[in-house]
Design a protein around this nucleic acid. Structure first.
Length: 272
DNA sequence: ACCGGAGCCTGTTAGC
DNA sequence: TGCTAACAGGCTCCGG
């Protein structure tokens, strides 16, 4: 499942084959994924002839600037999305839902088994991205900023750090890993955390996300890099999907509970 | 503010 | 073996 590190890996891999390329067409096999504009033909018309001038990441969104910001194409991979530049003469995989033709014989193909992924074409990216919280790996995301953003909150801590308006980009894997790093039980309420626990959680979020980027993502479900190869973060998780297996620190079996309808994994001894 | 549930989806897996 | 039901989960919307 693509979270911040997986999306960052995709963005880095797409830069070389995509920046400087010009769209020449568009085909949709599942238009429900296109949120804006509401008409496929309008998207095709607006995108044709536009050149990708930059690809960046904001939270879990892939942001493609076209003609220096004249238009912005935004893609969210959600659970099973996969984006890659592929030669046009290559057979179209059965899970390709939307396909952007590029000049000079390639396609940008959006594969997505579960069709949860979303596509947006907007004049102003803030139309989609404005509500997001701070980028957790930026220098200005200090422990004081984190403390301030959860101040006064009484919610259970794990759903709180999954809230994209609190801090952007943390998903289920990295939430569990961050809480393990901080030795905090995921079902604690935010207002019960001490300052040193908040500091540790801030560090845990940054550490686990950076580790995920360094390892080019976690190939736990269907996630693979644009070139089809796996990341390495699945080999470095301490708790995620390790239910019943011994904690690497104390040997106690990892437990699984459900919080906010998400499976949650933790060490009942190490995490207080 | 916060929570729970539905909905969006289909491939995989657990259970009978 | 073969079938069905449950499960996976990012995000939004809705009602309480």
């Amino acid at each position: 499942m693509p979270e911040l590190p997986e999306v960052e890996t995709v963005v880095r891999a797409l830069r070389d084959p995509l920046v400087g390329r010009t769209f020449s067409g568009f085909e949709s096999y599942w238009p429900n994924q296109i949120v804006v504009p509401d008409d496929v033909n309008q998207l095709r018309d607006r995108i044709r002839g536009r050149t990708v001038t930059a690809i960046t990441r904001r939270a879990k969104y892939i942001v493609m600037s076209l003609d220096d910001g004249a238009e912005t194409l935004i893609v969210h991979l959600k659970m099973t999305g996969h984006l890659a530049v592929v030669p046009t003469d290559q057979p179209v995989h059965k899970h390709v839902r939307n396909l952007f033709h590029l000049e000079d014989g390639d396609d940008l193909r959006f594969r997505d088994v579960r069709k949860f992924g979303r596509i947006y074409l907007v004049k102003d990216p803030l139309e989609i991205l404005a509500k997001l919280g701070p980028e957790p790996l930026e220098d200005d995301f200090t422990t004081d900023v984190f403390t301030q953003r959860i101040a006064g909150r009484t919610r259970v801590i794990k759903p709180l750090i999954l809230d994209q308006t609190i801090v952007a980009g943390v998903g289920n894997i990295y939430a569990d890993e961050s809480l393990f790093y901080a030795k905090i039980r995921p079902d604690r309420h935010a207002n019960t955390l001490t300052q040193s626990e908040k500091d540790l959680l801030w560090a845990g979020i940054r550490h686990s996300l950076q580790n995920g980027i360094d390892r080019e993502g976690a190939s736990i479900d269907s996630y693979v890099k644009p070139d089809g190869t796996k990341g390495d973060m699945q080999n470095a998780v301490n708790v995620f999907r390790r239910t019943g297996n011994p904690c690497y620190d104390c040997g106690t079996p990892i437990e699984r509970i459900v919080l906010a309808q998400r499976s949650t994994h933790f060490c009942p001894v190490c995490q207080k």
